[in-house]
């Protein structure tokens, strides 16, 4: 599963924007099987936490499905 690291800069419902070290921004949608809820995303954005997102590609959508989010340096999801 592809992985991307970065900082969560925007959160809207279950959608979030991740900005990587190269400055590129990508849109992710929290997948239905991800072990997390949408309301757990906003604290990540407020903390400007560095996160590691394991994701899958989607059909007919310019965005990725986040399957697993872990805060870098922590084991939590």
């Amino acid at each position: 599963m592809p992985v991307r690291e970065g900082v969560v800069t925007i959160v809207q419902e279950s959608r979030f924007q991740l900005v990587g070290d190269d400055g590129s921004a990508h849109l992710f949608i929290l997948g239905r099987n991800a072990a997390g809820e949408a309301d757990q995303l906003a604290p990540l954005q407020r903390r400007q936490a560095r996160v590691r997102v394991e994701y899958a590609r989607t059909r007919n959508l310019i965005g990725f499905v986040a399957e697993k989010i872990s805060v870098c340096g922590e084991s939590g999801r």
Partner: peptide, 9 residues
């Protein structure tokens, strides 16, 4: 504003 992805490509 709502961070919605482009769809129906």
């Amino acid at each position: 504003w709502n961070n919605l992805p482009a769809d129906n490509l």
